[in-house]
Amino acid sequence: MLRIPCPHCGERDETEFHYGGEAGVDYPADPSALADDAWAAYLFLRANPRGWFRERWFHGSGCRLWFALERHTVTDEIRSA
């Protein structure tokens, strides 16, 4: 069980959260201007590192806010983003 440090509610069990995958993936400013491969990259390509990973979590059972943190994908150690 991961213990996730919510910036608003403090450290809580993983079961209170939903996972949001890689952080910092912005919606394209002008999607219709993108070539197919750039649109595909926005839709489908996400970082998948073995190591530190900046990711999003949603505190569904608490403040109901999204936030980002950095977690090590091998050790599950967490540090603030």
Binding site: L2, H18, Y19, F53, V74
Partner: peptide, 8 residues
């Protein structure tokens, strides 16, 4: 699967 990305 566990929801998060993980290699551990």
């Amino acid at each position: 699967v566990d929801a998060h990305v993980g290699y551990g």
